[in-house]
């Protein structure tokens, strides 16, 4: 079993579109399990149109709440909270309550309250699903609005995906990762055999590419790169290829700008399904052939 994670650093470079194409190609040659680890913007299902099989609750962190009857208005909770989560409701200086959006779930106020007026319970922070797609089982999730712990949800999804993959002797776990370099990204790339970074030929994407590459080096994960919308700025594309060559990172291909990718998306399809002869489709096919050698 191999695990491939698709990342980008910068958002909106085409991670999900590339992941869905690779899923389609890989599923013709091997059995695979998919995980959409971009739980903030879980878009893979919009291209794979899976059927939901099982639904699970995701339990997030603690949220404190204050029993107004028991509270003696001593203010100790507000004093110890470092996240500005203890507030005076309606501006009443004698009343205390917890703003659940700001509450970090550290339980410091719960331990400090002299009259045990504070409780702290774990809350349901999202839902995750096991669904069936034409490419294989898909694990995906929905975070509830404004919830934290998305890294923990990603870890839970990936654990379930790897478990199913292991028990069915699958060849590949394909993970659609989140943008950035922080908590959910680190959770998404844990245990990956290879990362495919989808970048673009622009100053922002190049800046972010270097940060995600450093992050992957930090965690000892091998990287490969493909350049989306490569013809928007050919000299920047060449700059990426040269810097990857110097760092020994394989560049698996260029994908030209192709408005059929968006047209396909509007029909809930990948560009490969929508127009297999389009420039973007041909490019992704080339990338998959190289990727297969690494896997």
């Amino acid at each position: 079993m191999k695990q491939l994670v698709v990342l980008s650093g910068k958002g909106g470079t085409g991670k999900t579109s590339v992941t869905a194409c690779i899923a389609g190609l890989a599923s013709k040659e091997m059995t695979l399990v998919l995980a959409d680890a971009d739980v903030d913007a879980a878009n893979l299902e919009l291209l794979l149109n899976p059927r939901r099989r099982d639904t699970y609750q995701f339990t997030g962190g603690f949220k404190a709440s204050i029993d107004r009857e028991a509270c003696i208005s001593c203010g100790r909770c507000m004093e110890v909270c470092r996240f500005g989560a203890v507030v005076h409701p309606d501006g009443d200086p004698d009343a205390y309550s917890v703003d659940p959006v700001s509450c970090e779930g550290c339980k410091s106020c719960y331990y400090q309250c002299p009259v045990n007026a504070i409780s702290a319970e774990r809350t349901v922070a999202g839902t995750w699903y096991l669904s069936d797609s034409h490419c294989g089982p898909l694990f995906h999730a929905e975070m509830f609005a404004g919830e934290e712990n998305s890294g923990k949800l990603v870890s839970e999804l990936k654990k379930a995906a790897a478990g199913l993959c292991g028990s069915h002797d699958c060849g590949l776990v394909l993970v659609d990762g989140p943008p950035g370099i922080g908590c959910p990204v680190i959770a998404a790339c844990a245990g990956a055999d290879l990362a495919l970074i989808v970048t673009e030929p622009g100053v922002s994407a190049i800046h972010d590419l270097h940060r995600i590459l450093q992050t992957l080096v930090h965690f000892g994960i091998q990287s490969s790169v493909c350049i989306n919308r490569s013809d928007i700025n050919v000299s920047r594309t060449e700059e990426i290829e040269e810097s990857c060559r110097n760092e020994g990172i394989p560049v698996l291909g260029r994908i030209p700008y192709d408005d059929r990718v968006t047209m396909a998306m509007c029909r809930g399809k990948t560009v490969l399904e929508y127009d297999p002869a389009s420039p973007a489709s041909m490019a992704v096919l080339g990338i998959w052939k190289k990727l297969r050698e690494f896997l």
């Binding site: 999900t16 903030d40 913007a41 959006v101 998305s150 922080g182 968006t262 998306m265």
Partner: peptide, 29 residues
């Protein structure tokens, strides 16, 4: 990007939020 803790930390400090999107299914979702 996103709608979890880093985004919440930022927008809750503001008086007005501009949401930038694109007219696609991903943008809408």
């Amino acid at each position: 990007p996103g709608s979890s803790c880093p985004m919440v930390e930022t927008v809750k400090a503001s008086d007005y939020v501009i949401l930038v999107t694109e007219p696609t299914p991903f943008g809408l979702h």
